[in-house]
Design a protein around this nucleic acid. Structure first.
Lengths: 195, 195
DNA sequence: ATTATTTTTGAATCATAATTCAAAAATAAA
DNA sequence: TTTATTTTTGAATTATGATTCAAAAATAAT
């Protein structure tokens, strides 16, 4: 018998994140991913069904991690809704900014997967967004958030703004310092730009 | 001599917008674009250098139109900065929602072009964003906008939120009525979610 | 009508890269 | 060691679709 050496699946996944980030999903080549992972091209197909399967697993890992942490946040009843909203934003920033390449992939390839609409993917994504929804609803109920805001729209508003800003940071970290982004996002969401 | 019949360049451009919107730039086939435009595959190459050139022209047309209108808005000195900001948002919504397919292309393929970084493209895009910047700066100067906001971040914040919401609308117009989006966006930007 | 010129065509070419698979290498068990 | 089994390899296959180009069609001029 022979036993698998190292953790090639993990190596390939990490390489894929880098390569997808640099070239974008469609331009990224399997051979390049294999090269970065220090693995033969053929090995990629031992661990993954095909190219799309790799992207799918990248997202599944991310959503599942975020979802787990969000769950913890929501059940912490000592926090106000505003604090929970801040906490959610912090979590997203923490996870995405811990890995610049992952951030770029998430931000840019989301749409591709939504189109091909694989199971497994939308599952996590939907759960993830619905937790945000719960927080806003509670906030409106106890009058700490304005009732004029449409929850579905607000949710996507925040998601879109963060998505785009994280992309700005990933492309030009110097011009878009992440902590400044984080602080501005929280402030604009809470108070807007009016003085 | 023979003269060109109809306006094939326009037909191809319009077909390309539809096809890019439906499949995404990379999955879209030139042969499909030709089919929708009622033109032979080869004709596409009479009017455009290659596939990317088509995408480039789609964006160039859009930015140039928006830029023109924005210019008018900024020099209208009878408007307050808050009104100008509202006006900008309205213009973006007007242009994008007039053509659902165009909206999807703009929202999803922006990144692709920014990577290949063709001249002509970034030119318009930069001018476009810098007008927004001017409005915000004036607003801060005359104390109608908060000075705590970083202009560069705010600009991208708004752009990202709108970009994502327009995509939501283009995908599910029923669930994301455009006027509701427009009104919510303006309100969140001005006052935030706090009550 | 005939000719000259331009536009249009779409099948053939070419390039690229995803995927496969038979052979080689590595390890464990005997 | 030798054998059996599993992992790894990477060149060959295959699929796809962008791009080309020689021929056909259309029109204007003569």
């Amino acid at each position: 018998m022979r036993v698998k050496e190292g953790n090639k699946e993990k190596d390939i996944l990490e390489a894929a994140i880098k390569v997808f980030a640099e070239y974008g999903y469609h331009v990224a080549k399997i051979s390049k991913i294999a090269e970065i992972a220090n693995v033969a091209t053929g090995s990629v197909y031992v661990y993954f069904k095909n190219k799309e399967d790799i992207l799918l697993k990248i997202f599944a890992n991310l959503w599942s991690e975020l979802h787990k942490e969000f769950k913890l946040l929501t059940i912490n009843s000592s926090l106000s809704q505003a604090e929970k909203l801040d906490g959610m934003i912090d979590l997203i920033f923490d996870v995405l900014t811990a890995n610049q390449a992952l951030a770029m992939v998430v931000v840019n390839e989301q749409n591709h997967l939504q189109k091909s609409n694989k199971e497994g993917f939308t599952d996590f994504y939907d759960k993830f967004l619905s937790i945000g929804e719960t927080i806003i609803k509670e906030g409106i109920l106890n009058k700490s958030f304005s009732a004029d805001i449409d929850i579905k729209i607000f949710k996507q508003f925040v998601f879109g703004a963060i998505r785009h800003l994280v992309n700005c940071w990933a492309n030009e970290p110097k011009n878009f310092p992440i902590n400044k982004i984080r602080q501005n996002v929280k402030s604009i969401i809470k108070y807007g730009i009016a003085k």
